[in-house]
Nucleic acid binder design. Sequence first.
DNA 1: GGAAATAATATGACCGGTTGTCTTATTTTG
DNA 2: CAAAATAAGACAACCGGTCATATTATTTCC
Lengths: 204, 204
Amino acid sequence: MSRSAKKEASRDALLNQGVSMLMRQGYHGTGLQEILDAVNIPKGSFYNYFDSKEDFGAKVIQHYVDPFIAQLTTHLRYSETDALDAIQCYFDELVTELEKNDFQGGCLLGNLMGEIGDTSLLCQQSLQTAVTRYRDLLQSGLVKAQQQGTVRVDKSAGEMADLLINAWQGGLLRAKIEKSSGPVRQCCQDLLGDFFRPLTSASR
Amino acid sequence: MSRSAKKEASRDALLNQGVSMLMRQGYHGTGLQEILDAVNIPKGSFYNYFDSKEDFGAKVIQHYVDPFIAQLTTHLRYSETDALDAIQCYFDELVTELEKNDFQGGCLLGNLMGEIGDTSLLCQQSLQTAVTRYRDLLQSGLVKAQQQGTVRVDKSAGEMADLLINAWQGGLLRAKIEKSSGPVRQCCQDLLGDFFRPLTSASR
DNA sequence: GGAAATAATATGACCGGTTGTCTTATTTTG
DNA sequence: CAAAATAAGACAACCGGTCATATTATTTCC
């Protein structure tokens, strides 16, 4: 294994561990030592990979959101006929994952927005771009669904994407303290299954 | 001033300061020393008022939510004819307050749910009861609005209360990192001004 | 090609500061 | 004066960050 590849592997291990620990214990609730121990990397090496804890946090945020972007992208790609269904399937997967983890953690973006959203400028910017990336992808999916006639067109896809993300975030917080997937399930049902639907003569 | 009244005053000062600092800097991001200094109470005295930092956090949560309950209750009381309007006015006030604070802090409940929602059982329970109190009050307002015919009846008031709270929480997080009241305004408009409205022949 | 010199990287002890908590001492009260 | 409330300060543990040193890699020279 080449030198730079090994370095990249260590970086990745730190980021992965960072995602899981920051999500569960928060930014200030997680020490660097704790993360480094978990992946067996010496303390002194940390600053070979990242400039500071704050920089690390910002990188962890980007690392966290990548798989979600990929997952949603996949769903959207292989479901050209029914984008709304693709979105629903995607969120169903998230719910399943959440249940598997006993509702721990929730969403790193939401947690960090609340904790350090206005104390760390670096992380704030990282959170902004992460959320925007996610939002824009969701918007593109909703645009497709609009074109397919499964989603109402009298509201902009962007507006609906925002609402869905916001309600999902809030639902995740509730799910976390109630230890139940009820809140997130209901939120998806209310929006994707009702509010976003086009008005037909038979509806409601 | 009686002895117990003075003690109560110190307790209150600590709780008020706790609300403001925990909201802005988070639970782990705020030290007891910092809070105590701000209200000029010696460090050694802290444990005369609270059992531990965790206990303090739980009490701060309850202390935080009280004014919101009172504020919403007032709006609902003095607006027997239009409960939906009362709810809208209430949220408008919240938006104004948020703008006045330059979008800092957000909601203590949301922030702490994310940060310590599944690491501190004590705070988790406190968060649960606080959110439930708030939700139930909002639900009662929506029931009134349903009876007044301004809110659709084919969805339960509880379901809508949950959705509103969740979307509001998410919107607050977005507002915080975008430094804009857009997200929360839009969220209120989408739900109170559209989704919750009864279906009339002229709508949409 | 092999040895010596040089550069680059990895590391763990250590820094000043702060954490939450507790024991001990002082002050206040009835 | 006894009892209870309050304050002081010590405590060990931990924080993020630094740095001299040890290890490894690369280049230079014969």
